[in-house]
Design a protein around this nucleic acid. Structure first.
Length: 851
RNA sequence: GCCCGAGUGGCGGAAUGGUAGACGCAGGGGAUUCAAAAUCCCCCGCCUUCACGGGUGUGAGAGUUCGAAUCUCUCCUCGGGCACCA
């Protein structure tokens, strides 16, 4: 018996596929096309189990589609711009470009042995000038179409390092390197007008039939359409004659429960007041020291400052309300000002209690309604409530009815107007960093902000930069920054902001259809290959990446780079669960966390310790594997010890694909043993001859397995499909059938396993004398006649509890089943305890005797 | 804080209104072996029973149903996202 040597076998078949060009995609209108895409990786330098899981799932689909007669496109590339490359350059010298391309080479070398059916001829990295030059070209197109503009926006500013920080780099309000308290600073930045498409992006969600419902729900909520009332409070004695504060509210029905006005610290009025009021200036300063993320604002203690200003209530001009500056109000949403109704909003209630403001009920529960004390009364808008301070509707009405009536009433009185607003904000794409796609504009004193000419693209990143000083090296680059104006030819300054890396990943799927085109896309290729038939990636991209891609595809269509059918670029989406792992952490002298790789941690009787120093390690429960937390596991070791097929089989078998999987070492050994067993079984069968008993049973089981596995693969039930393959392997191993039947069963088993364990399957295919490559063979078909069972076992329940069972012909009429059931001993015994109330027979399923 | 998910034996999980625990891991027993490894066979939720069987059981609590892991509501725990991590 020959031993299965994964390393040499796998290399052999990978070479065979490459020689045959099995996975190089070419346009071919004679076959249905199938574009399968997994989210491309960031080139960290090492592949991890998350990649293995993601790309193996896509590979199963790609190989299955190839076997079912499709022309498959299955490309791979690199999401190669981003902060880690600059961080590496700062930490250890070197250049982001060298670091990135070296990582790509390293990672590709780790990916190749996995045997994924990728078309490497289409590979590109987003940091290739050929790619980002086309992106710059599209930026100029977008500019012409009015899809890009500039406005002020706040960033996290590290006053010691004099640099802009990402949210991730702000830890407890302090810069991650300097430890200095972070400030909010306003900069002029570039934005995509995604908000113009709020309604369209929202409506089109309905057409995404093959997207997970939860992703669609998350996107809907993110876009956040709301109907409300916009109106103004008149301001008493405002500065510079300012006489009104514009407010947007989704609950105009609670207008008579207002007790204060809140404005954002960034509101123009707040900014005006801080000029001469030191208290306001101090308070605003403090607010500006908070992080810029919504999470930071929402989690922070709700605080406010009474400006001393008062406004009049629109329905009662004698009623004056105080104006507070409040730290939880976003300038970016609505008008940057709200009215607070403490009785019906918990945040407003907390605020009112803290500052001694009145709590005015506008409605109470329809039955036993009591005034609000410590908890705001916030029933669903569809509940009928009893109105105690309503206007323009009945005493008993739902929130929805009251809101509609309030808007109509206010409009009729000339107090504001109904408006629809969206939570979705424009996409800020400016980054004050080097390692990104340069924004192709120049700043000219005479001509203003002007795009560069397309013939001078790509605007390449200069190579001669250093990272010994914080901040953006482009800002201080002597020759790169200075240029001439493309309009007037006078000296001008290049834009030094680069693009958000989400821009890079918002159109790579389109570029894969023609990676060498002289324009961003080639329409005949885009038309043939688009849309992506199956997109696969992590749930963590449910909102931003996918929403930005949907917007970008529309913008590309407007500029003629994609056909109209591609404005929703992903026909089907599958969000795989993440691979998680425990996190190991110690603290440095400043009590900041220091993370450690699992391979550096040892388990002793007294707990987890660092292998090198014996220092105790705090173990944090499993979370998403991430480079920054170092809770990553290296699949290269599994490939080395067991081979790629084992790694592939293992990541597919252990968990349902949409769910998180915690990485464990034990499964790998089991997968390897099973594949070895199949190889032994195949060699035994190859050597056997003669006839036996039970051929029909074996073939029946085989057809059932074809059916189940096909269904499993098509519905992303990979773990369930693998369980069926285990079961069929057991059946085959125990079968006493003749050699011919066993060979047929073994060949079929190899084919059904081929999308998952392609190398082993090729080896078995060849061993059993099949012609050509299994990768190019047609998927086996289940014979429907073999799937029909002639008899069925029905469980018999008594009052919902299983008590017995009967085996009957599949098509036995209900009446006969009932007769048999009543003769059953367990049923007879039960009937002695009480009279028969009901007899439920679900044909082919179950019988329930109700007593 | 807000939005979205998930929770089933010792462990990963199966079952999407119809026999809860398929399949795998770990564990126990046996065969083979001088012995071991490897391999093969059997057992395996918990309580109770010599056994047959009975009771109980899908994070907690309620509800709908002849029947609920599955549907509804409330709560708890864990995870993802929150616009400059990718």
């Amino acid at each position: 018996m020959s031993r299965y040597d994964a390393t040499s076998v796998e290399k052999k078949w990978q070479d065979a596929w490459e020689t045959a060009g099995t996975f190089a995609a070419k346009r071919d209108v004679s076959k249905p096309k199938y574009y399968v895409l997994e989210m491309f990786p960031y080139p960290s330098g090492r592949i991890h189990m998350g990649h293995v899981r993601n790309y193996t799932m896509g590979d199963v689909i790609a190989r299955y589609k190839l076997a079912t007669g499709h022309n498959v496109l299955h490309p791979m590339g690199w999401d190669a711009f981003g902060m880690p490359a600059e961080n590496a350059a700062m930490a250890s010298g070197g250049h982001p470009k060298d670091w990135t391309y070296q990582n790509i080479a390293d990672m590709k070398a780790q990916m190749k042995p996995m045997g994924w059916s990728l078309d490497w001829t289409r590979e590109f990295a987003t940091c290739d000038p050929e790619y980002y030059g086309q992106q710059q070209s599209m930026f100029i197109d977008f500019l012409e179409k009015g899809l890009v503009y500039r406005k002020n926006a706040v960033v996290n500013w590290d006053p010691v390092d004099m640099t802009v920080l990402a949210n991730e780099q702000v830890i407890d309000g302090k810069g991650w390197r300097s430890g200095a308290p972070v400030e909010r600073r306003e900069l002029t930045q570039w934005f995509f007008k995604i908000s113009d498409y709020s309604e369209e992006l929202l409506e089109a969600i309905d057409s995404l039939d093959n997207w997970p419902a939860r992703v669609k729900l998350m996107q809907s909520n993110w876009i956040g359409k709301s109907r409300g009332l916009q109106f103004a409070f008149s301001l008493i004695d405002g500065p510079d004659g300012q006489d009104r504060i514009e407010v947007y509210t989704t609950r105009p029905d609670t207008l008579l429960g207002a007790s204060f006005i809140g404005i954002s610290p960034d509101h123009p009025l707040a900014r005006r007041l801080e000029i001469e009021n030191p208290d306001v200036a101090a308070f605003n300063d403090e607010c500006r020291r908070m992080g810029t993320s919504e999470e930071d604002l929402e989690k922070a203690e709700k605080r406010g400052l009474d400006t001393g200003l008062r406004v009049r209530h629109p329905f009662d001009t004698a009623w004056e309300l105080p104006v507070y500056i409040a730290n939880f109000i976003l300038m970016d949403y609505g008008t940057g000002a709200i009215f607070g109704c403490p009785a019906h909003d918990q945040r407003d209630l907390d605020f009112a209690r803290k500052y001694g403001l009145p709590v005015i009920d506008t409605f109470v529960a329809a039955e036993n309604g009591a005034p609000v004390e410590t908890e705001a009364f916030v029933p669903p808008k569809t509940d009928v409530v009893k109105w105690v301070r309503g206007f323009a509707w009945d005493e008993n009405a739902t929130g929805e009815q009251a809101i509609d009536a309030a808007i109509a009433f206010c409009e009729s009185k000339g107090v504001g107007f109904g408006v629809t607003k969206y939570r979705l904000r424009d996409w800020g794409l400016s980054r004050q960093r080097y390692w990104g796609c340069p924004i192709p504009v120049v700043h000219c004193e005479a001509c203003g902000v002007v795009p560069v000419k397309k013939e001078s693209l790509p605007i390449r990143l200069p190579d001669d930069v250093t990272f010994d000083k914080p901040g953006n090296p482009l800002d201080r680059h002597p020759t790169w920054r200075n240029c001439t104006c493309p309009v007037c030819g006078n000296p001008a300054l290049r834009e030094t902001d680069t693009m958000d890396t989400f821009v890079d990943s918002s159109w790579y799927y389109a570029r894969f259809t023609a990676p060498d085109a002289e324009t961003p896309t080639s329409l005949p290729d885009a038309d043939y290959w688009m849309n992506v038939d199956q997109y696969i990636g992590g749930i963590e991209h449910a909102i931003l990446h996918l929403l930005y891609s949907r917007f970008f595809a529309r913008a590309m269509h407007i500029c003629g780079h994609l056909p109209e059918k591609a404005i929703e670029p992903f026909d089907a989406l599958f969000t795989q669960g993440m691979v998680t792992h425990e996190i190991y952490v110690t603290r440095d002298e400043n009590d900041r966390p220091v993370y450690h790789l699992p391979e550096h941690v040892e388990w002793t009787e007294s707990g987890a310790r660092l292998g090198a120093t014996g220092q105790p390690v705090e173990v944090i429960p499993s979370a998403k594997m991430s480079k920054s937390k170092k809770n990553v596991v290296d699949p290269v070791n599994i490939i080395r010890d067991y081979g790629a097929d084992t790694a592939r089989w293992f990541v597919l078998s252990d968990s349902p694909p949409e769910r998180d999987v915690e990485w464990t070492a034990s499964g790998a050994e089991a997968a390897f043993k099973h594949l070895s067993r199949i190889w032994r079984l195949a060699t035994d069968i190859a050597a056997a001859d003669g006839s036996g008993q039970g051929d029909a049973d074996l073939l029946r089981a085989m057809h059932k397995t074809i059916h189940d596995v096909t269904l499993g693969v098509e519905s992303f039930g990979f773990n369930a499909a693998i369980a069926k393959l285990y079961a069929f392997t057991n059946t085959l191993a125990k079968s006493t059938a003749g050699a011919a039947a066993k060979r047929q069963a073994m060949v079929t088993l190899a084919q059904l396993m081929a999308p998952m364990t392609p190398h082993l399957s090729e080896e078995i295919w060849a061993l059993l004398g099949q012609k050509g490559l299994i990768a190019e063979a047609s998927w086996p078909a289940a014979d429907p006649a073999q799937l029909v069972e002639d008899s069925v076992t029905l469980p018999i329940q008594v009052n919902g509890k299983r008590r017995s069972e009967i085996t009957v012909a599949k098509d036995m009429p209900k009446e006969e089943v009932e007769k048999l059931v009543l003769e059953d001993d367990a049923v007879k015994r039960a009937l002695e305890q009480g009279a028969l109330k009901k007899l439920i027979v679900v044909p082919g399923r179950i019988v329930n005797v109700v007593i």
